[in-house]
């Protein structure tokens, strides 16, 4: 499962950021694929990006003159969220992959959560409401509409968009100033924190995770738990990178469907798709 997930993450990241010409020339892809969005957070100003970022797209709709309901993006979130929930975060998000890889670096004693997690976990909802919705409409531009999340926070935009573009494009490099340094600081802080804490951006700041988390309770892709077969050993909770108990796994908005609980379960009672349970035979043998 671990290798499969890493392979899916790598392949998806390469496929959705595969416009090599952009990296070489400091330009971005301008084709028709950008009518569509990728499911994960992936800046559309990344020179390699072949499709749009869902949070950037939502803000683009909210930034228009007047106010109209962004049906197109609501539809996208309902469709992807109802099918996958936060499976997107665990398997299909390029910035999630970066944080996963950094967390594998064998320095520091690893932590699953930050102190005050029970409060900080609401940060992603604040980011969604304050920076994506309200901020996009009027707050940060002095009543001018700005994509506030992209402008002031998004570390994915800095990593995949700003840095490659500034490296390859001299005219852009000459314009970078205080705002870029602010965003670079946020990126570096989150990347450093990722080495110690499991996916700090996903757990505490990502507005896309906040949206998909809402769909976790009823999405098609679930982590099913066969309660009758469970031997209550707690292995799944210990293996869960965000410390969810077996009762919370899957339906919790924090579950990213990484599958580590399934690997750890000795009775094989957790699985993506319904099937007969190995724990049945284990219990009979016991």
């Amino acid at each position: 499962m671990k290798k499969l997930r890493l392979a899916v993450q790598l392949i998806f990241t390469i496929l959705t950021n595969g416009y090599a010409y952009g990296y070489l020339n400091g330009k971005i892809y301008r084709g028709r694929l950008k009518y569509a969005c990728v499911p994960g957070l992936n800046c559309y100003s990344c020179p390699g990006a072949v499709a749009s970022c869902p949070i950037g797209a939502l803000q683009a709709l909210l930034n228009r003159q007047g106010f109209s309901i962004p049906f197109g993006m609501l539809g996208f979130f309902f469709l992807v969220g109802s099918l996958l929930g936060r499976f997107v975060c665990g398997w299909l998000c390029p910035f999630g992959l970066v944080q996963d890889l950094l967390h594998k670096i064998p320095v520091f004693r690893k932590r699953k959560r930050l102190p005050l997690h029970h409060i900080l976990k609401f940060g992603k909802y604040v980011a969604l409401l304050l920076f994506v919705c309200v901020g996009s409409v009027f707050l940060f531009g002095g009543f001018a509409k700005v994509p506030a999340f992209c402008k002031y926070i998004c570390p994915s935009g800095t990593l995949f968009g700003a840095i490659p573009l500034l490296v390859a494009n001299e005219s852009l490099r000459s314009q970078a100033g205080g705002l870029f340094l602010w965003k670079l600081g946020i990126l570096l802080l989150l990347l450093l924190l990722s080495v110690k804490v499991y996916r700090p951006f996903c757990q505490y700041l990502c507005p896309l995770g906040a949206i998909y988390g809402w769909f976790n309770r009823f999405s098609l892709v679930q982590v099913h738990w066969e309660k009758q077969q469970c031997i209550s050993c707690g292995a799944c909770e210990r293996a869960c990178p965000v410390s969810l108990s077996v009762h919370e796994i899957s339906r919790s908005p924090e579950c990213i469907r990484c599958g580590k609980c399934m690997e750890a379960c000795p009775a094989d009672c957790l699985y993506f798709f319904r099937r007969s349970c190995k724990g049945d035979s284990l219990k009979r043998e016991g």
Partner: peptide, 19 residues
């Protein structure tokens, strides 16, 4: 609405890259 998204996505987003 997707034409609006496309128009935004095919231009370099100065806000996104911190400029």
């Amino acid at each position: 609405q997707f034409a609006v998204i496309w128009k935004k996505a095919v231009m370099i987003c100065m806000e996104c890259i911190g400029i």
